[in-house]
Design a protein around this nucleic acid. Structure first.
Length: 419
DNA sequence: TCTGGGGTCCTAGGACCC
DNA sequence: TCTGGGGTCCTAGGACCC
């Protein structure tokens, strides 16, 4: 059996852990720049605040319902996620952390009653972290996803944990679930399926494999098998990431080369640090910039370029030179830029590096120790050292409703007063 | 005034190899 | 008149996920 555990309204729940006065009150968390709603407590959903709605459009609702509004605090959410995951890791040797707020657990070999085991997980996460979770348990990952959905949809009947452990329960769930809500069926596939009269998951599993293969690739075939109860999507332990991106919408429009360049260098140095942290070297990158496509008054553009590094490297100093060269290729003067970003990818492991015959065709070996020193300092002291070409401010965002870094910064630790 | 960010996987078709 | 067969690698773009 496989369990899928996911945190309820995760970001909103994180804010609530450290501020009990938010219990029972609608809570929303906004994206970077305080742009859109990206998380809502159940109370916030109830008063009609939609996912993804721009904050300025929901301002009236916020006011009317006394909504507690927060700027995204990823330092806090990331740390709370690690805590939740580590509690759950104690329930099986095989855990796949699937996203910041959910994971799969391989429960094969566990002798306990599944429902009891699931409820135990839920209680323990709640007690140790203060985060509420929903739990689905089933023979395959795709079915566990559905079980989880049922657990959340019917909390009073399921107690927040639903187990699919018989064909009867499986078929009942498949009759209930719209195809569009199957994990792995997105908008396009749902449209195709609806067009041929397939509306529920139960209809989907009856389609001939040839149709599924043709219209939804091998991914669809695997999905179909999973829903029939045949495991076809592996549970994979955390591997190294295959790419790292840092992209931002700016707080204002930038219209000089130097301003955009400074932002991209800052983004690159963050991405490169992640590459080094997982002992990888980067061989390619993508740089993009865009003007403000919400503005109709002028022509809007989006440009991107792929840059191949002449040698694999994780040195910020080296990568930055190629960022600037790439930017020169795509930068158009007299534009008002609103968004830009960099993606580093095509990694090899540091230990697998095959150096070129001539030294000048390799990454400068001295940078390895230099970057190591930089990373150590920055680990201890936030914003400790940076390139002179970077601004002192890492992200220039509006964050007007930011909570404290309760668990990662000693100066922000929660104080409790006792009378 | 104001509109997010970060990932993975699959496939077709071109280029190239022997 | 008639011109093989089998394979790998790369990449852009699509689809999907949270």
């Amino acid at each position: 059996m496989v369990a899928l555990i996911d945190c309820n309204n995760f970001y909103a729940s994180c804010e609530r852990v450290f501020n009990p006065s938010l219990i029972g009150r609608p809570v929303v968390v906004l994206s970077n720049n305080d742009g859109c709603v990206i998380a809502r407590s159940s109370e916030a959903k109830k008063v009609g605040i939609e996912m993804g709605v721009p904050a300025f459009k929901a301002a009236d609702l916020f006011k009317k319902h006394n909504v507690a509004v927060y700027s995204a605090n990823f330092a806090l959410y990331g740390d709370m996620s690690r805590r939740v995951m580590s509690v759950l890791a104690g329930f099986t040797p095989n855990q796949e952390v699937y996203s910041i707020d959910e994971c799969f657990l391989d429960l094969s070999g566990i002798q306990e009653d599944m429902r009891w085991y699931g409820l135990k997980m839920k209680d323990k996460v709640w007690q140790w972290t203060g985060i509420p979770v929903g739990i689905g348990i089933a023979p395959t990952k795709a079915l566990a996803k559905i079980a989880n959905r049922i657990a959340k949809k019917y909390p009073s009947q399921t107690g927040g944990c639903h187990v699919i452990d018989s064909d009867e329960k499986r078929l009942k769930a498949l009759k209930w679930l719209p195809v569009a809500d199957i994990w792995g069926v997105g908008r396009k596939s749902a449209m195709k399926l609806n067009a041929i009269g397939v509306t529920k998951a139960i209809d989907f599993i009856q389609l001939p494999e040839s149709w599924v293969r043709k219209n939804m690739t091998i991914t669809g075939v695997n999905l179909q098998r999973e829903l029939k109860g045949i495991p076809s999507i592996d549970i994979v332990e955390l591997e190294k990431a295959k790419s790292f991106s840092v992209t931002r919408t700016f707080e204002k429009e930038y219209d000089t080369f130097d301003e955009v360049k400074e932002r991209l260098i800052t983004f690159t140095s963050l991405a490169a640090a992640k590459v080094r942290a997982q002992q990888s070297l980067c061989r390619r990158m993508l740089i993009f910039l865009q003007t403000n496509f919400y503005k109709d008054s002028e022509e809007q553009i989006a440009r991107s370029v792929e840059v191949r590094l002449p040698f694999p490297t994780s040195s910020t100093l080296e990568i930055v030179d190629f960022v600037v060269a790439g930017l020169k290729q795509i930068y158009e003067p007299h534009r008002h830029y609103k968004r830009a970003g960099v993606t580093l990818y095509d990694f090899i492991d540091t230990i697998n590096l095959q150096p070129a015959l001539f030294p000048e065709m390799n990454s400068d070996p001295r940078h390895e120790r230099l970057m190591d020193a930089v990373d150590r300092i920055n680990h201890r002291t936030k914003g400790g050292v940076r390139l002179a070409s970077m601004d002192a401010k890492t992200f220039k965002m509006h964050r007007n409703h930011l909570s404290r870094e309760f668990t990662t910064n000693i100066n922000d630790i929660l104080e409790v007063k006792c009378d």
